[in-house]
């Protein structure tokens, strides 16, 4: 059972993602969504504070802990007028806590081991970063995965890039989401699982000042939610959130970055668990992108 959020005030009690049950990594089951925090930042970041992101994301997520609050009914996406039954959420969403901090090498090794272990159980890891560089570590732990990346700097031309930060090496893609979804189905190799990198820089800068890599011409929340809902219906081994710096100078009290990320992530979680859409499946032949 989940940790109850009511009548517990949001800022009180044990903090877990969306008030989910906590688990040891060895207890993760197939088809679980296993949340893992990596409160680590590298010294190359332009501002200190990315290590505070996992806690900030968890704090914001408690707002969406419907399944753990007996005083709420069920969530409705007011834009789509779509009811979501979250009855099974507490059985499949779990929080594993944070990677223990040590030397940089030790953190990378622990993250690599954890991502690999979660993947081997058949669960999907939801990794809360942290530095963008850590997503390369996760990628190395999941060598069989294709990588789809929202925002951030392109690393590999073979990955699928959605609104990347431009560095001149990756051709500019169309901003037409429908066209890009078709491109995704062509790019996708359904025999391989997917790793999703979700960097805060995918959003338009004016929506959030909490990103160390601000960019103009980014996506709005609807577009990012749409993408994450589509990706959540695929065979995803891990999704990693990066780029949030809750401690940007002078902006410590402005929490719009974590709210943006968690709101969009909710679309992924609901899609991954099959709420409101056809249940996702790990069987290759049935994989499809529902938009």
């Amino acid at each position: 059972m989940p940790l109850r959020s009511a009548p517990l005030p949001r800022m009180a009690g044990h903090l877990s993602f969306m008030r989910a049950q906590t688990k040891a990594i060895c207890d993760v089951r197939p088809d679980d969504l296993a949340v893992l925090g990596v409160p680590f930042e590298d010294t190359g970041a332009p501002h200190a504070g990315q290590s505070l992101a996992p806690r900030a994301l968890r704090e914001t997520s408690v707002y969406f802990g419907w399944h753990a609050n007996p005083q709420f009914s069920h969530p409705v996406d007011i834009d789509a007028r779509q009811d979501i039954s979250t009855d099974g959420l507490h059985e499949r969403l779990c929080d594993l806590g944070d990677i223990s901090l040590g030397s940089e090498d030790a953190v990378h090794a622990a993250l690599r081991a954890a991502a690999s272990q979660i993947n081997n159980t058949g669960a999907c890891a939801v990794i809360l970063g942290g530095s963008d560089h850590l997503s390369e570590t996760v990628q190395s732990a999941l060598p069989m995965c294709q990588t789809a990346q929202l925002g951030g700097k392109p690393r590999d031309a073979g990955d699928f890039h959605i609104a990347p930060l431009s560095d001149g090496t990756i051709p500019t893609q169309t901003s037409n989401t429908a066209m890009q979804l078709i491109e995704l189905t062509h790019w996708r190799d359904a025999s391989r699982p997917l790793f999703v990198r979700f960097d805060l820089s995918v959003f338009e800068t004016s929506l959030s000042a909490l990103c160390d890599q601000p960019r103009l011409g980014g996506c709005d929340l609807d577009t990012v939610s749409h993408w994450l809902s589509a990706l959540g219906q695929l065979d995803v081994s891990a999704i990693m959130l990066t780029g949030l710096n809750p401690n940007r100078p002078g902006m410590g009290v402005v929490k719009v970055g974590q709210r943006l990320m968690v709101t969009a992530l909710l679309a992924f979680i609901y899609a991954r668990l099959g709420f409101g859409i056809a249940p996702p499946t790990r069987q290759i032949s049935k994989e499809s992108v529902t938009t």
Binding site: S73, D77, I78
Partner: peptide, 12 residues
């Protein structure tokens, strides 16, 4: 101006 996810019971 209602946005995002709302409580379904309240809406009904």
């Amino acid at each position: 101006g209602i946005a995002g996810w709302v409580d379904g019971g309240d809406l009904v």
